[in-house]
C-alpha cells in the first residue's frame, strides 16, 4: 500500500522548539504522538482492519459465500480492464469529477467571500439558505429534481416558453442530459456544504488583512485572488481532496436521481459496486477489487493535490 507523502519542503522550520535543545523537542514530539494516538488507533481498528480483509477478498473468486483464492491472484483486477460496464462507470464518474468539482469549489469560494463581508446584511439568512440543500432529505431532493426535469416539468416549460427548444427534452432518458442533471444536483447539494469550510477558514484569518487590502486600493477581485485564496489554501486543499473523494465514491445521485439510467450511462462506480455486491448474483471478490480500484484512483489524485497544495511556505 502506498502512502501519500505530505512531507513539506521545509519540515520543522516553524517548530519554535528547535533551538531550545533536543530534550524538549523530543518531549513535545512525544506529546504530539499521544494527542493523535486515540484517533489513529480507532482508524486502524475501524478502517484498516476491514480494509485488509476487503483486500484479501479482492484476491478471491467465486459466487456467494463459497470463495476460493483466485488464479492468478490478480484475476479480479485483470477483470476490471475487460469489463465494459466498469469502464463505462469509470468514464462517467470522471466526467462528473472534472466538470463538477472545479465549478463547485469556485462557486463556494465566491459565496463564502461575499458572505464574509462585514457590511452585508441578512448574512445569517443567506448562509442558512445556501447551506440548507445538503441538510434536506435526499428523498425530497431527488423527487423535486425528477419533477423539475420531467417531460412536462417546469424546466421544459420554461425553455419552450423562451423558444430555446422546440419540443420537450426527455432529460433523464438521454445520456448527456441525465449526466447534466446529476452534475446540477451535485452542485446544488454540495456548494453550500463546501462554503461552510471556507467560512470557517475565513474566521481564522484576521479581518484587518482584508481591510488593509481595501485601503491599499485593491478591488474585490484582486483582494479575492491575492488575499482570500492564498489565506484559504489549507481549506481549499481540504475541500479539493474531500470533493474528489466524494465524487469518485458518488452513490446517492446515481442511485436516487437516475437509477444509473439510461442504459447505465449515468451510473457511478460506487453504484456499480453496490449492484455487484448486493443486487446482482453476489460477486464479493470482484466488488472488493472495484473498491480498491476506486481507492487507488482517489489516492493518486489526493497525492497530486497534496504535492501541489500542502507546501508549508
Amino acid at each position: 500500500m502506498s502512502t501519500i507523502d505530505l512531507t513539506p519542503d521545509q519540515a520543522g522550520v516553524r517548530t519554535p522548539a528547535r533551538h531550545r535543545g533536543t530534550g524538549l523537542e523530543k518531549k513535545r514530539s512525544l506529546t504530539g504522538w499521544i494527542f493523535l494516538l486515540p484517533a489513529a488507533l480507532l482508524i486502524c481498528w475501524m478502517n484498516f482492519y476491514p480494509m485488509i480483509q476487503a483486500f484479501l477478498l479482492s484476491l478471491q473468486s467465486g459466487k456467494g459465500a463459497k470463495l476460493t483464492w483466485a488464479h492468478p491472484a490478480w484475476y479480479n483486477y485483470a477483470r476490471l480492464f475487460k469489463d465494459p460496464q466498469f469502464l463505462q462507470t469509470l468514464k462517467t464518474t470522471f466526467i462528473y469529477l472534472v466538470i463538477q468539482v472545479p465549478i463547485m469549489l469556485i462557486l463556494a469560494l465566491i459565496l463564502a467571500t461575499l458572505l464574509n463581508s462585514k457590511t452585508l446584511r441578512f448574512k445569517g439568512l443567506f448562509r442558512t439558505a445556501i447551506f440548507l440543500p445538503c441538510a434536506v432529505s435526499l428523498v425530497s431532493y431527488s423527487f423535486v429534481f425528477r419533477t423539475l426535469f420531467s417531460t412536462d416539468g417546469p424546466v421544459n416549460d420554461a425553455l419552450m416558453g423562451l423558444h430555446l427548444i422546440s419540443s420537450p427534452v426527455n432529460w433523464l432518458a438521454n445520456a448527456g442530459t441525465a449526466r447534466f442533471v446529476i452534475i446540477l444536483g451535485l452542485l446544488w447539494r454540495w456548494t453550500g456544504y463546501n462554503m461552510v469550510f471556507y467560512l470557517a477558514g475565513l474566521q481564522n484569518i484576521d479581518y484587518s488583512t482584508f481591510e488593509a487590502a481595501r485601503i491599499d486600493g485593491a478591488g474585490p477581485v484582486k483582494t479575492f485572488i491575492y488575499v482570500t485564496i492564498p489565506q484559504l489554501k489549507p481549506m481549499i486543499l481540504l475541500t479539493a481532496i474531500m470533493s474528489t473523494n466524494g465524487t469518485l465514491q458518488l452513490f446517492d445521485e446515481s442511485w436516487n436521481l437516475t437509477q444509473g439510467g439510461p442504459a447505465n450511462m449515468s451510473m457511478s462506480m460506487s453504484h456499480y459496486l453496490y449492484q455487484l455486491s448486493f443486487q446482482n448474483n453476489p460477486n464479493i471478490g470482484y466488488g472488493s477489487a472495484v473498491s480498491y480500484a476506486i481507492l487507488i484512483m482517489v489516492a493518486i489524485l489526493a497525492l497530486i493535490q497534496m504535492r501541489v497544495g500542502d507546501r508549508r511556505d
Partner: peptide, 30 residues
C-alpha cells in the same frame, strides 16, 4: 492539533496513511 502543532515528517506520513481510510467505499468494508 497534534499533527499540525507538533508536526514532523513522521507525523505527516502518518496523516497521509490515515487519509487512505476514507478512500474506499463503505460497501466494501461493511
Amino acid at each position: 492539533y497534534g499533527f499540525e502543532v507538533f508536526h514532523s515528517k513522521g507525523k505527516d506520513r502518518v496523516m497521509s496513511l490515515l487519509l487512505l481510510a476514507m478512500m474506499i467505499p463503505f460497501a466494501a468494508t461493511m
